[in-house]
Design a protein around this nucleic acid. Sequence first.
DNA 1: ACTGTTTTTAGTACCTAGTCCTAATATCGG
DNA 2: CCGATATTAGGACTAGGTACTAAAAACAGT
Lengths: 196, 196
Amino acid sequence: MRRSKKERQERLQETIQANPFVTDEELAGEFKVSVQTIRLDRMELSIPELRERIKYVAEQNMHDEVRSLPIEEVIGEIIDIELDKSAISIFDVKKDHVFKRNGITRGHHLFAQANSLAVAVINDEMALTGKADIRFTRPVREGERVIAKAKVTRLEKLKTIVEVSSFVGSERVFCGEFSMFRAPAAEKDDQDEIGN
Amino acid sequence: MRRSKKERQERLQETIQANPFVTDEELAGEFKVSVQTIRLDRMELSIPELRERIKYVAEQNMHDEVRSLPIEEVIGEIIDIELDKSAISIFDVKKDHVFKRNGITRGHHLFAQANSLAVAVINDEMALTGKADIRFTRPVREGERVIAKAKVTRLEKLKTIVEVSSFVGSERVFCGEFSMFRAPAAEKDDQDEIGN
DNA sequence: ACTGTTTTTAGTACCTAGTCCTAATATCGG
DNA sequence: CCGATATTAGGACTAGGTACTAAAAACAGT
């Protein structure tokens, strides 16, 4: 043994991870063992052969050929609103909103819908989110319609708490508590918890 | 001739372009000609063989080696990543990202950058955000460059905590704690705190 | 209809980077 | 020294080709 099987296999794994394009022959040369040993190692580590590795890498590439998606102005369509009280919006999940990998909606879209609604419900046009505590409670898939309901639960001069729950049918998929600031100009020096 | 050589070759080129993973045999079936004819066609069009095509696609992919999330799906540009440890991305705030009224960045873009980064840093096929506790600590304006830094602070089999802080220059503008799931299929019945 | 050209098909040998399997050695620990 | 583990060697087979030769089929012009 040049160094013990274990150590070689560890290094083998790293090597292939770093460069999936390496052949067994090259690896054999690298580790000064026979090609057969490399193959046994791959078997034990269940590392697929070169072509399968390359194919996998290539497939990764093909599965998402859509470029980065610009998030449009308003997320969701507001269908009902009572300023400083409550609001409802709907958001239809399209192909662009989901991970190509698994078809699950990317979290920031659900966040954006809820956050947009929290901003919209505030009767001041200039609301900023300071803090948010959110939960994604069920994955949302392409084609599903998300209905977000916002409720103002506390209303102060500067601070307003908005609770938003989003549903697909009767199932809740998201909930969050947004701490909103009815900020004025908001120039430079705001110390903490400002922004949107 | 089923349709003339020329037409077949044009369609061949398109077909392979659309799906580089197709074999000569499959193409022969598709176009109702022999495998040899397909090979002559490829020769004349100088289209490389299946394996070379796959390899090419894979090599394209290797130029940026993000694993968990294809790079196109990350909001912002990842400039450094150590899987399961830390990651850094930059995001330039453009006109499209701010409120018209006051030029302040809409919160969900900062959230998206941070959330994307939290997903990307995870060294697994799939990561979903379950929970997030976030704070917007300073408004970000058009033209500013936001640097998000993610750090994995807890790493378990299924749950991973990622802390993300975003800065403009030396000022922190956002911070959040993301509770991520290294989820497998994630089908129907997940009770709570799943989704992304 | 016959000829000439182009196009298509068939078949062979060979290649790479493997798999799967058997069998012979090497090497190590007790 | 013995038995277990590890390594190496070899053969048969595979996919998805290349490179080449040769025959057959299709088409065009006269």
